[in-house]
C-alpha cells in the first residue's frame, strides 16, 4: 500500500485530501499541530470509512525542531511498517498572521510555516521519496502572482504586511517546487503546486484577529468546499506516469507567475538551506 504524508491534515483541504486518498486505497499519515485535532480528524475519517488506513502525528511545524522530530518519526514508521518508501508528501500546512510574529528561531511565522517547514520536511523525507520515486505537492495559491520575492528583507521585518507575506510565501512554494524538479527529476521525483482556488476553510480565522479575521470571514463564504481542490491532489497522486507540469488547478495544468525562474529558485534554495541549516544534494542543474 502506498503511503502519503499530509501536513495540516486535521481540517480544511488537508482533511478532505486525506479522506479521498484513504478511500482510494492509500495509507495516509496526517500531521497536525495539536493532539486533540489529530484525534478528532482521525475519528472523522474512520467514521466515514472504517477501513481507512490513517495515522496521525502531532507536530507544530512552525518550529524547526518539531519538523525534524516528526520527520524522524515518519521515517521510523515507514521503515517499520513497510519498505521505507514514501509515495507522496503533501506540504499543505499554512497560516496567515495579521501581525509580524516570529518562531523560536526568530523567523517570520508565515514564511517559516508556509515555506521553510515544507522545505525542511521534504529534505528530511527525501531518501524515502527517492526510494518510491515519489512526488511532493505544495498547496499554493493564485495570490502568488503580482509579487516578487523581497530578497533584501524576506521576513518583511522592515514593512510587514500580512497579505504580502502570504503572497510571497506562496510564490516561494512554486520556486521550491521548481527547484526540486530541477534537482531531482533525474531521480524520478516530481514536485507540483496545487492552486486550490478560493476555498471555504478557516485559514484566515486561526490566530489572526483584527481586519484579517473579519475580511476572511466575509470572503470565505464565496469559496468552494475543500473537497473540490482535494480532487486535484488525488489526481496528481494517482498518476502512474508522473505529470510534467508544475502548477495545477482543478486537475489541469495552468500558467504561473513569470517570477518562477531558475535563478530565483536557486536563490531561494540557497537561502532556505542556510535558514534550515541543511544542504540538499543534487546540485547539478538538469534541463526539464
Amino acid at each position: 500500500m502506498n503511503t502519503v504524508v499530509i501536513t495540516g491534515a486535521s481540517s480544511g483541504i488537508g482533511l478532505e485530501t486525506a479522506k479521498i486518498l484513504t478511500q482510494n486505497g492509500f495509507h495516509v499519515i496526517g500531521v497536525s499541530r495539536s493532539e486533540e485535532n489529530c484525534k478528532r480528524a482521525k475519528e472523522k475519517i474512520l467514521s466515514e470509512n472504517p477501513n481507512a488506513q490513517i495515522t496521525f502525528m502531532q507536530a507544530d511545524l512552525m518550529q524547526q525542531r518539531e519538523v525534524v522530530k516528526v520527520a524522524e518519526s515518519i521515517t521510523l514508521y515507514l521503515n517499520n511498517s513497510g519498505n521505507g518508501e514514501l509515495y507522496a508528501l503533501i506540504n499543505n500546512a499554512a497560516c496567515i498572521r495579521s501581525w509580524y510574529m516570529t518562531t523560536e528561531e526568530g523567523y517570520e511565522q508565515q514564511f517559516a510555516l508556509n515555506h521553510l517547514a515544507g522545505f525542511l520536511l521534504t529534505y528530511k523525507l527525501l531518501p524515502a521519496l527517492i526510494k518510491a520515486k515519489g512526488c511532493v505537492i505544495m498547496t499554493g495559491s493564485g495570490s502568488h502572482r503580482g509579487i516578487k520575492v523581497h530578497w533584501d528583507d524576506i521576513m518583511l521585518n522592515r514593512r510587514y504586511n500580512p497579505l504580502i507575506a502570504y503572497k510571497q510565501s506562496k510564490l516561494c512554494n512554486l520556486l521550491f517546487a521548481k527547484g526540486l524538479n530541477d534537482r531531482y527529476a533525474k531521480d524520478g521525483i516530481r514536485a507540483y503546486v496545487v492552486d486550490p482556488g478560493l476555498v471555504n476553510t478557516d485559514i484566515g480565522n486561526k490566530g489572526t484577529g483584527g481586519l484579517v479575521n473579519f475580511v476572511w470571514s466575509l470572503r470565505k463564504k464565496h469559496g468552494v468546499s475543500p473537497d473540490v481542490p482535494a480532487k486535484t491532489y488525488a489526481f496528481l497522486c494517482e498518476q502512474k506516469d508522473r505529470q510534467n507540469g508544475l502548477y495545477y488547478y482543478l486537475c489541469k495544468e495552468i500558467n504561473y507567475s513569470k517570477e518562477v525562474t531558475c535563478e530565483n529558485a536557486n536563490r531561494l534554495f540557497e537561502l532556505s538551506e542556510r535558514l534550515c541549516g541543511i544542504r540538499y544534494e543534487g546540485k547539478e542543474m538538469v534541463a526539464v
Binding site: 525542531r65 518562531t103 528561531e105 526568530g106 535558514l275 534550515c276 541549516g277
Partner: peptide, 14 residues
C-alpha cells in the same frame, strides 16, 4: 534554555 539555542541558531543563520 531551548528557546535560547533556537534563537542563537536563527541569528547565526540569518
Amino acid at each position: 534554555e531551548d528557546g535560547l539555542l533556537c534563537i542563537k541558531q536563527g541569528l547565526e543563520r540569518q
